[in-house]
Design a protein around this nucleic acid. Structure first.
Lengths: 251, 251
DNA sequence: CCGACTTTGTGCATGCGTTCACAAGCGGTA
DNA sequence: TACCGCTTGTGAACGCATGCACAAAGTCGG
């Protein structure tokens, strides 16, 4: 076990036993949507909205209302029948479930175009994710601050990450370096990795990896383009219900 | 089994009827993995590997071997029992299925940090996706080339996209601008959109949207951090499944 | 030519996630 | 208080995806 993190004491919002039980049962897909709900709810709260129904919120989040209710049921019953949900309550509850009450220190490795952009996001969208360390192999970059944080040399990953208690590592390096960087992050105790490099990372079971793969996204879109083009070129009869939208014409 | 190619050799890689039938039946999840397989296969081809078994390829792609075979079966049987798959054949077949034989012109809207990074990717990872247009609202940016392509003003989206036959639009704008930009892209005939803005886009049915949401990714990781920390903090809980879950009364 | 070995392709069962539909519960109202 | 309308929460059915296990089909050595 790699969790010898000094503070066993959660100084921030301990989960109650009931919540903990549930946290284990929340489907992956639902977790992703909870984050979306949270954003929609935050926007509503900023506009002074205090209550919301599952119907409204589901539309804002672009999902089915029943699905939303089921997702929320995974984290407990915080709605009022006949009325809806209290925005404030829901926001803080989802934040607690997602672990956003504690700050997650983020390290970005690879200060190329993408790494630069990530560092400059400044605290990352939906704050709570302060970027506290940057790394690169290029000696010319070392010491230069990007987005307010000085770049460290890649060899310092382990020491710096442990020192600053980095909990999330972001890999934005070229493909060949990714696995090596990943290994170093892991040995520094980082258990969550966001990988932008088009590489399948090998990690121990106790490390969570999420990948963002632009090439794959593009190719999925390409597939749909091809399919559409093919369908269009091959419509023997009427096209399927698209007749309504004359989207191609410019107003 | 000679590869029979029809008489009409056209410039646009025609899908044979059999392929077209299959293209419709490929599960979304499988399409994403095909892109991953393709990358692994391309790497192998570059290293001179000519044949590969499902076991080898599945490990390179980080998936179950049976799943890989099933995925490949969706696009037809191109393996040889007892031997494996011919790398070249598989590469070109997956490319055809994914529609990578035709070039997909890409437009990037929003030349901030991220847009800059995307434009500089230069043809996008896994070539075949030439960036042919850049847009921004900022008049100061207009005309300045980024990654070799001059920036156009956002008001020109429709005309420029139609002129250059953009098939994929990438939205890298701040959230408030995203929907508006999306609408313009759609009216320019763009049917596939890759959205980096943390916004739920409303589009007609005939438009395909994929979103890359950094905040959501971070929050999913945060959830796992919290769950792990929590598990580590009290391993003593006997997880006996039943009995515990009942409705817990709020203290 | 045959038999043993290897690897594909796939039927089937299992599990997860989504959707539907409705009872339960709450606030408002007379 | 009793009723009414509205919304939540969830049981149950459905559909999709995953993984197993094995027959089919090919290669290779003798």
């Amino acid at each position: 076990m790699a969790s010898q993190r000094g503070e066993g004491e959660t100084t921030t919002t301990p989960l109650e036993p009931a919540d903990r039980e549930r946290a284990r049962a929340i489907p992956e897909a639902a977790v992703a949507r909870l984050a979306v709900y949270l954003r929609a709810l935050s926007g509503m709260a900023d506009q002074g909205v205090t209550a919301v129904s599952s119907e409204e919120l589901s539309q804002a989040a672009g999902v089915n209302a029943a699905k939303l209710r089921k997702d929320l049921s995974y984290i407990g019953s915080y709605g009022t029948r006949g009325v809806g949900y209290d925005v404030e309550v829901l926001v803080s509850h989802i934040e607690r479930i997602l672990g956003l009450t504690r700050n997650h220190s983020v390290a970005v490795v690879g200060i190329g175009n993408l790494g630069h952009a990530l560092a400059n996001y400044g605290g990352f969208p939906g704050r709570g994710f302060p970027v506290t360390a940057l790394f690169d192999v290029d000696a010319d970059l070392v010491g230069i601050p990007v987005g307010g944080i000085p770049v460290n040399h890649i060899d310092e990953i382990t020491s710096v990450c442990m020192e600053r208690e980095v909990s999330i590592g972001v890999i934005a390096t070229p493909p060949p370096a990714a696995q090596s960087v990943c290994d170093r992050l892991v040995s520094a105790g980082v258990q969550c990795i966001l990988n932008f490099a088009p590489v399948v990372l090998q990690v121990p079971d106790n490390v969570e990896v999420r990948k963002v793969d632009l090439a794959v996204e593009m190719q999925i879109l390409s597939f749909h383009v091809a399919r559409r083009a093919d369908e269009a070129a091959n419509v023997s009869v009427g096209n399927n219900g698209l007749g309504v939208d004359g989207m191609v014409i410019r107003p």
